[in-house]
Design a protein around this nucleic acid. Structure first.
Lengths: 138, 138
DNA sequence: TCTACAACCTCTAGTCGCTAGAGCTTCAAG
DNA sequence: CTTGAAGCTCTAGCGACTAGAGGTTGTAGA
């Protein structure tokens, strides 16, 4: 049996975050001591590991709730889990595209200025004030 | 003189968002009517345009406050504006790297499963439960 | 000039995923 | 038996909005 602190050390998830996960219904403790402290078993440790990993991959709490729910009903089709993962992938790709466009634009803005003039004629400020300067969409 | 709704239409910034920008000290209205409604002049319109553009590029409210402050003191060096832009660029590049790693991992996870089995043997769930499956860092 | 109603106003609370702090209690080692 | 680290609950804060309640103003048509 693990205390919340031991669980935290083993998974790298902070103690208040573990309590937060419990609060939102993502992770229940195995039980409590007489003095009301949380105790976890191996199952709890594994569940928190999955949560941690999924969060690292950018899955929302809602998506992880659905995944865990699925895991707890092994008879149900795996299709739903795949859908959730693919949705997450689509999402990541959208963000990637957007960030690439932003990078291009920021390079143009940050490089256009040598930082030596005064801000009246600053290229950074001029670029931000005038969208016309931009190449392409963002 | 523009009402808040006209400003909203011209810049694409929602009305409550404009009020929010005022609340956090980013955009002041030119004045009010007798009946306490906001009225903006051309300067306000341009300022909101800059804010919109900078937000689209991912600058924080705090960074934009600094940029506007700089714009209003044209005698000060442009270096600070360039620093802010470069900081933002660094930030975007960090996010890009991370998202690329996530994409790789998600492709592996989402493609490893045909979605036809049941969730007991689901590759998506197995991958999330076991970090060992992952190639490389993320 | 009157009326109707869209657009405006302020205020509070909710979103997401935590994080920080106050003030208290419990556990475990010496 | 004492000490102090670690646990507990509860509330509030972060950033950048968004939503809704409930009331007021501006303006166009009759």
């Amino acid at each position: 049996m693990f205390s919340i602190g031991q669980l935290s050390k083993q998974t790298g998830v902070k103690v208040p975050t573990i309590r937060y996960y419990e609060q939102v219904g993502l992770l229940m403790s195995a039980g409590r001591t007489e003095g009301n402290q949380r105790r976890y078993d191996k199952g709890g440790l594994e569940r928190l590991g999955l949560i941690r990993h999924a969060r690292d991959l950018g899955f929302s709490i809602e998506a992880i709730t659905a995944l865990i729910d699925l895991q707890e009903h092994p008879d149900r089709s795996c299709q739903e889990a795949t859908l959730i993962a693919q949705h997450q992938l689509t999402d990541v790709r959208k963000k990637l595209l957007r960030l690439k466009a932003l990078e291009t634009e920021l390079v143009r803005i940050a490089d256009g200025c040598d930082g030596e003039g005064n801000s009246e004629e600053c290229y950074v400020l001029a670029s931000l004030a005038n969208h016309q300067h931009c190449r392409g969409e963002h």
